[in-house]
Design a protein around this nucleic acid. Sequence first.
DNA 1: GTCGCTAAGTAGAGTCGTTGCACTTTTAGA
DNA 2: TCTAAAAGTGCAACGACTCTACTTAGCGAC
Lengths: 197, 197
Amino acid sequence: MTVPSISRRDRKKAATRQAIADAALRLFLERGYDQVSIRDIADAADVSTATVFKHFSGKEALVFDEDDDRESQLIAAVRQRRSDQSILDALRQHVLNTWPSIEAHPQAAEFTHLVNSTPVLRAYAERMWTRYTDSLSAAIADEYGVGHDDLACVALARFVLEIPVLARSRQDRRAAIEALFDILTHGWEPPSKPPAP
Amino acid sequence: MTVPSISRRDRKKAATRQAIADAALRLFLERGYDQVSIRDIADAADVSTATVFKHFSGKEALVFDEDDDRESQLIAAVRQRRSDQSILDALRQHVLNTWPSIEAHPQAAEFTHLVNSTPVLRAYAERMWTRYTDSLSAAIADEYGVGHDDLACVALARFVLEIPVLARSRQDRRAAIEALFDILTHGWEPPSKPPAP
DNA sequence: GTCGCTAAGTAGAGTCGTTGCACTTTTAGA
DNA sequence: TCTAAAAGTGCAACGACTCTACTTAGCGAC
């Protein structure tokens, strides 16, 4: 905890970043995303607006603080899978293992509501995932020794990365993830009729 | 052609809109999206900037002028399919029939390049499609008599709407569309090894 | 015809996100 | 201790977009 990385400078930097992120999240939850300006956040964190943009690439990024190296974990899941496991199963496993816990924070309900009720944030969240399409599909293509633009590989990457998006709003996320991977594995099938009460 | 809708007023309105759209597209293709300001477009079309926003919801919308009622055609394809045809096949047919021609315009190459080389436009184009997810999945769910939030239906809608996006950058779009629908129909399968030169 | 009504268009000021620049302060490292 | 990079500041600027108050022009009814 108190031995984060290295130097005092880095610690201060991280502290500033955290102050900004905290102020931003608090204000967003209080007033709503569109009702909070970057100046408000800068004032609340006691920094200048320029500093905000030194730490975050844009306003939306203030909402999604922690996210680095999800991409590399994804690639690793493909590359370092057990030898008897298919890529699809490895990805299923990985999504099941890592993803539901991410959104199991305190404040998760408020946070999810904030994102879902703000169109620009919904869009940003979706693009966060689909951004990895290129690198994931490249990794998959490498496993099969085909070109990086192989259609089947690009498609698999894209569809898999849609799964967290689709599962986000579900009550039982694990079941949703399983069902969605089943579609990719065995093909789509019509839904069973309603559970007949 | 010259009997567009009704009154003179409406004709003038449409003319203004068209002038703006034409000026915008021309300038975008000449200089690139980011190198053209709304003011430039307004000046070129000889209107005020406020008028631009009366006709278009934002800068990106200036690029994608024609697009209405694609949504209703999509729904119709599901609802009014031949009785011996599955929904998946009906959608495959519809995408094959309607979509490749849309991008077969003159200027198609330049236009595609403009969109693909401008991140904000890529994002906008993708969301244009996924926007229809809700209504398409509702239509599918209705066909099966299940709730509008049925996971399988939402997933099918989403995956199908990703297909045009994935096929856009392919040389043989028809083949790509077929291959992608095959994945949804029969499940994903590893790519065949490279064609061995 | 002309008298409103409504919708299209304008000008201009203002907000907000975002960037660039010149400058000060801090601190790691030689 | 000196130096040079890095963090932060304050300010001006730009571009997208909005708001408000105003003008203009086509429409329909009398």
